[in-house]
Amino acid sequence: MDVRQWNLSFGSQSGGGLSSHQFSVGLAEIRVVNGPTLLECQGIGSCIAVIAYDAHACVSGVAHIILPKRLPSSSSDRPGTFMDTAVEYLLNELVKAGAVAERLKWAYAGGSDFVHLASGASLPALELGRRNSEAAKSELSRLGAEVVGNDTGGTTGRDVSFCTADGDVKVRTVHEGEKTICNLQ
């Protein structure tokens, strides 16, 4: 059965309830599913959705990550908030759920930058999307992840989804519609 058919709200205005196999992954959330599923992150701005899938074990997961690294002042106890804690946490949870690290295929999307100083001056602190994209690349590389696709940058928000039925990672923007950025099978 095509699990993507269960999608009631992605890319539509229906906003109906989610099926028991469909999960909307919110800010700083990490979700791992053992079995057929449709995982989606709606309204990714400068954040990054990191997605991984072991097709053999049918174990998948998504992290909706906010910031590149934990700050000295950080009080958040959510590992999904920071790239330098979220990806490793996601990997460990996937393995606990039955995935084999070497079989996992990975993708990431997001990292838009639409906030600029009105004066036109440059301020790297505001380029959160770029910093998040670089951190995702770096962290996945550090963990030896096989990254098969990414879609980052730009000045608009994205909806990101992954479905085990076809293995496609899809990105939707208002101006370009939906496109498949890679396949994790």
């Binding site: 800010l27 309204g43 639409f114 600029h116 100083l117």
Partner: peptide, 14 residues
């Protein structure tokens, strides 16, 4: 930036 309730109105934000 965090996409909280973000719709079609991203683009450049000064």
């Amino acid at each position: 930036v965090t996409g909280y309730g973000l719709g079609g109105d991203g683009l450049q934000y000064q």
